[in-house]
Design a protein around this nucleic acid. Sequence first.
DNA 1: ATGACGATTTACT
DNA 2: GTAAATCGTCATA
Length: 204
Amino acid sequence: MIPGERLSRREFRRGPTDLARRLLGCTLVRVLDDSARLSGTIVETEAYLGVIDRAAHTFGGRRTPRNESMYRDGGTAYVYFTYGMHHCFNVVCGAVDEPVAVLIRSLAPREGLQQMVERRSRPGREVGEFDLCSGPAKLTSALAIDRGLDREDMVESQRLWIERADRVVPRMIGAGPRIGVDYAGAWASRPLRFWIKENPHVSR
DNA sequence: ATGACGATTTACT
DNA sequence: GTAAATCGTCATA
């Protein structure tokens, strides 16, 4: 287990609760068509438990063109478009036809900061270091992740992958309810959101 | 064909 | 704290 190595298929298949914690501290790497490299340390995740989880897109076994990638093998990217303007990025983490995933909610930016600033800036709005990747739709914007990367196999991809890090010790991991899933009844309050404690890049 | 709804972000009171 | 932005997707008909 060498830090900096890509996560393997086996590692991706650990299931959502385990992988959501394990991804903390790992590096998400995005390489653009012009070979520019953008990356950040994962500091906040959420687990989505699949057919039993009212908050998951695959609750009850729903299978549509949009969420098809969640039914693929662990290590597949699930990227969806929402609210008419935002993309969110997930790591599929089960066997084939076991539609579970981890939503990546925030990163501590590492490489390509200047490019991220350009991608996140709008006329009239300055973006600071802590507004670059501190939210699920902010980081997809900063790293140029959209539906073109849906179904990407991150075990093999030259555009998007995750590199292993030393395990974040349990006492440094916070846990609490997921964000934005109030419609999910009892599932809304379950502690399936994880973050690195006291990290300034965590959302909210 | 239609309508309701977001795994969010941002600006504004 | 509240509300607007903005449109693909899906369930219903």
